[in-house]
Structures are given as structure tokens and as C-alpha cells.
């Protein structure tokens, strides 16, 4: 019964060296040398300062920005140090209350003409990670009028910017079409600066 105990100890040691030290170090060296940007969080730099990560969403509530999806992280939304979903079930009273609040906020900010339009579902439901960097093209289109009015720009110009920042499915097959909210909003600020 104890015959294999010593072997087990030595084996665990060897496996730890191979899979717990050599393997992650090898991958790290490869990643840091060949894909430095991606391995370190895909940061967006502006004037030598990191203003965000292309892969992590940020919260927006100004009418002049496109809004991200609701985030369930605490204590503040889009907390990068504590990813979390809401884990609310489809009948949860908390979910229904939250969705009502989000619908009201979106409708209040949009023009009266848009207030009756049904709101794209991803804009009123919390993402899985609480850090979703994307909204659907439908959710972006829903906000174009509001952003254009607030920024006093033609809606066509904003729509063109949205189209520019829309990523298609991979090979037309995998994943979903999506718009990166942070990059889109940075591009909006870029317009105003010109």
C-alpha cells in the first residue's frame, strides 16, 4: 500500500517542474517576444498613456457617447479586478426591476421619436463577464440618433463611424457581428478634436 508513496512524491515533483514551471515559462517567453501587445492586455495608448484595453469594456453614461452593456460587477460597473455576471434567473424580480430601469434611462436620453422603438436586448441585459467590450450593431444603431444630436453632428457621419467599427463574424460563421464601444467612443472624441 505504501510501496507507491515515494514514487508518487517524486512523480509529483517531476510533473510540477515540467507542467508547472517549464511549460508556463515557455509559453510566457513565446508570448512576450512574439505577441507582446496581446500578452499584456491589448492596451490602447494615447499620447503615451494607457486609456483602456481593446478587450475590456468601460462604462459610459453621457448622452454623447455610445453606452456599453449593463455590467454586474461591484462596487462599480466594469470593475476589471472583479469580473462577474448578474446570475439573475429569467423570473428574478431583481432582473425585471433592473431591466425596467435601464429601459427608462435609454428612453429618457433618446429623442421622443425613438422612445417607442423596442430596445435591442443586449443593451438592457448584463453581460456574462461584466466586462463585455462589445454591443450588437442593432444596439449601436439604436443610439446613433442620440449621439448625433448631442454632438451636433450629422447622423450619417456617426453611422459611418459605427459601420467602420463593426466587426463581422469570423469567416461569416463563428461568433456574432459586434461593435467595440470603447474604440468607437475614442473615435468619436477624435472627430471632435479635428
Amino acid at each position: 500500500m505504501f510501496k507507491e508513496l515515494k514514487t508518487a512524491f517524486l512523480m509529483l515533483l517531476v510533473f510540477t517542474l515540467i507542467t508547472g514551471v517549464a511549460y508556463p515559462l515557455l509559453v510566457t517567453v513565446f508570448a512576450q517576444v512574439a505577441f507582446n501587445d496581446a500578452a499584456n492586455g491589448s492596451l490602447i495608448m494615447r499620447d503615451g498613456k494607457a486609456v483602456g484595453s481593446r478587450l475590456l469594456g468601460q462604462p459610459f453614461s453621457d448622452a454623447g457617447y455610445f453606452w456599453s452593456r449593463p455590467s454586474a460587477t461591484g462596487p462599480m460597473p466594469y470593475n476589471g479586478a472583479a469580473s462577474s455576471g448578474s446570475n439573475q434567473g429569467p423570473l428574478s424580480p431583481a432582473l425585471h426591476e433592473a431591466v425596467e430601469g435601464r429601459l427608462a434611462a435609454l428612453r429618457e436620453a433618446s429623442s421622443p421619436a425613438d422612445a417607442a422603438t423596442a430596445v435591442p436586448v443586449d443593451l438592457v441585459t448584463a453581460s456574462s463577464s461584466g466586462l463585455d467590450p462589445h454591443i450588437s450593431p442593432a444596439a449601436a444603431r439604436y443610439q446613433i440618433e442620440r449621439v448625433a444630436t448631442t454632438r451636433k453632428r450629422p447622423a450619417e457621419q456617426i453611422a459611418a463611424l459605427v459601420a467602420q467599427h463593426t466587426e463581422p463574424r469570423w469567416l461569416g460563421l463563428l461568433g456574432e457581428p459586434r461593435v467595440n464601444v470603447l474604440e468607437l467612443n475614442l473615435a468619436l472624441d477624435g472627430l471632435s478634436a479635428k
Partner: peptide, 18 residues
């Protein structure tokens, strides 16, 4: 323009199918 469906607790890049 959207995957639609039950998006609570799902990421936009994956949508419903993935």
C-alpha cells in the same frame, strides 16, 4: 444586426449559438 434571444449573462461576441 443582433443575435437576439436571452442575452442576460451572455457576451455579444458569442451571442446565442456559441
Amino acid at each position: 444586426l443582433q443575435s437576439g434571444g436571452n442575452m442576460e449573462g451572455k457576451e455579444v461576441r458569442f451571442g446565442i449559438a456559441a
